[in-house]
Structures are given as structure tokens and as C-alpha cells.
């Protein structure tokens, strides 16, 4: 009897530990033969590429980092409030809010606003539990990292990593509709912050970045097209369709150029892309995009 108990324990304990490990949700990699070139790959993103791209269509870090590097100050009124998180009713609202708060967390983190971060972490934890993906957000670790201002880089890593793991899990378990909403919320909130800032601080780089969202929006819209007939998604789809229409007049042209490769003084390989995208966008178009984005954000992110 004792012997059987020992065997069972030896089996059960590692299984429990393994199931707790955050690493067990990694995406299975697909293997295929290396092509000589990708000339036969259509420029339109196909289904498989789309699944992969969900993970970085909208990053909680990149928009905030761009703003910080442009020397833009922190706008404390822009991040969504966390007060109404407990009042959200549907999974649609919760998933959109989760994405939005992820973008806000990245914004606060980049600007080292650690005193405010804790509210966002608590709200994110609440929403992930509600959406049955709470296992990817270790609240105690995130809280501990947040309380130490020297650990903000680790907090950034841990929160971005948790979002990546969650999206991979949602993809693997056939819940792409939820990951699509999280990504949409993330993109919308990041874009809302950038567009609002551009009203008072229209730096050329920021305006260019607003114009370049035409490319990202196209991919996001392709994702949402899968749910065009879903009544839950209908209004969101139509709203983003309106935004896409405003972008029709924005033109992006390309200047060709060969990449330059060299080794820097530290032995690091540097590659400079000399092919450039150039955005042609008018003041009227920017204003319309700002207005429409504000409207969509306030309609779908109920915070």
C-alpha cells in the first residue's frame, strides 16, 4: 500500500508543478523547408500568418516607448480609469477592457508611474480571472516588482510575457475571438493615447505614425472580418470599417533601397533598412482620424 502511495505521489507532484509552469502553453512550431526566396508568398497575410501576427499586432510597449523617445510628457488623464472594471458585464467588454488596460500598463510602465501601476495590475488580474486566463498573471510577483522602482524593467518583461502567453493559450484553445478582442482593445487604447497627444503636440513623427496605422488597421480589420456576421462583433466591425474608410485617402509610398550591414564597435551586427515608407496625410485626415478614434474608443472601452 505504502509503495502504491509513493508511486502515485511521484506521478502527481511533478504533474501539478508542470501544470503550474507558465511555459507549458508554448505554441507548437511548424517545420517546413527553407525557401530560397519568398517570391511565391502572397503579400496578403494568410490565415497561418494572421495567427502568428496576433501576438504583436499591438504591443503594450512600442507606442508608449515611441512617445517617451519623442520627449512627449506623461498625460495622466489619458489612461482608462480602473474604477468601473467590476461593472463590466459581457466577455466582449471584459476582453476589450483587458487589452486597453494592457496598453495603459505599458504606458505607465514606460513613464515609471509605479504608484498607479498597482491598480492596473489588480484590474488586469480581475479581468483575466473573469475570462478564465488568470493563470498567466501572477499577481503577487507583478505586485512585488511594482513596489520596487528598480524592478520596473522586470515588471515590463513579466507583464508583456504574460500577455504573450495568454494570447498563445487563447489561440491554442480555439478562443481566437477573445484574443482578437484583447488585441483590438490594446491597439485601440494605444492609438487613442497617441492621437490625443497629437492634438496638443503634433510632432511630425507622431503624425507619420498615425498615418502608418493604416497598415496595422488593415491587418486588424482582416482579423475582425472573420467575425463580420457575429452579432457581438458587428458594431465594432462597422466602427473600424468607418475608420478604415477615412484611411482610404491616406497614401503610403515606398522608396527602394538595399539594406546596409556592418559590425559596430562592440562586435554587434547592425542592419540599416534603406527601403523607406513615406506617409502622405493631410491635416483634415489627421483630425478626422483623431475624432473617429476617440468615438470608437469611448464606445467600446467602457471604463
Amino acid at each position: 500500500m505504502k509503495y502504491k502511495v509513493i508511486i502515485i505521489l511521484l506521478l502527481v507532484i511533478p504533474t501539478i508543478i508542470l501544470s503550474c509552469s507558465t511555459n507549458n502553453k508554448r505554441r507548437a512550431e511548424k517545420s517546413f523547408i527553407l525557401p530560397d526566396s519568398l517570391e511565391d508568398v502572397p503579400s496578403q497575410l494568410h490565415e497561418e500568418a494572421m495567427a502568428g501576427i496576433i501576438g504583436n499586432l499591438a504591443s503594450p510597449v512600442e507606442v508608449a516607448a515611441m512617445l517617451n523617445e519623442l520627449g512627449v510628457p506623461f498625460y495622466q488623464q489619458l489612461p482608462a480609469s480602473t474604477k468601473k472594471v467590476n461593472t463590466l458585464q459581457t466577455n466582449f467588454e471584459k476582453a476589450m477592457a483587458l487589452g486597453a488596460l494592457g496598453a495603459d500598463l505599458g504606458y505607465l510602465n514606460i513613464y515609471n508611474k509605479n504608484t498607479r501601476i498597482i491598480d492596473y495590475i489588480s484590474s488586469i488580474k480581475y479581468l483575466t480571472d473573469e475570462l478564465n486566463v488568470g493563470q498567466f498573471f501572477d499577481f503577487n510577483t507583478l505586485k512585488r516588482l511594482c513596489e520596487n522602482k528598480h524592478m520596473l524593467d522586470s515588471l515590463m518583461f513579466q507583464s508583456v510575457y504574460s500577455f504573450n502567453q495568454m494570447n498563445t493559450f487563447l489561440e491554442k484553445t480555439g478562443r481566437r475571438n477573445t484574443s482578437t478582442l484583447v488585441v483590438t482593445g490594446l491597439w485601440l487604447e494605444g492609438f487613442y493615447i497617441a492621437t490625443q497627444i497629437s492634438k496638443s503636440d503634433p510632432k511630425p513623427e507622431l503624425i507619420e505614425s498615425i498615418g502608418e496605422q493604416k497598415i496595422i488597421l488593415k491587418d486588424l480589420f482582416s482579423l475582425l472580418e472573420n467575425y463580420e456576421d457575429d452579432s457581438t462583433f458587428k458594431e465594432l466591425y462597422q466602427s473600424l470599417e468607418n475608420l478604415t474608410k477615412i484611411y482610404e485617402g491616406v497614401e503610403i509610398t515606398y522608396e527602394t533601397g538595399e539594406p546596409e550591414t556592418f559590425e559596430n564597435e562592440n562586435g554587434m551586427l547592425e542592419i540599416i533598412q534603406n527601403e523607406k515608407s513615406i506617409v502622405h496625410i493631410s491635416i483634415d485626415q489627421v483630425e478626422n482620424i483623431i475624432k473617429e478614434t476617440e468615438k470608437i474608443r469611448n464606445q467600446f472601452i467602457n471604463l
Binding site: 517545420s31 527553407l34 500568418a49 502568428g52 501576427i53 504583436n56 515611441m66 507619420e208 505614425s209 502608418e212
Partner: peptide, 12 residues
């Protein structure tokens, strides 16, 4: 054999 992933990169 290769592992392929799609990503979006941003200008500047």
C-alpha cells in the same frame, strides 16, 4: 528544417 513566424515591425 525551419521555424517560421510572422511579425509586424514599425518604422523609426
Amino acid at each position: 528544417p525551419v521555424s517560421k513566424n510572422s511579425i509586424i515591425l514599425r518604422k523609426n
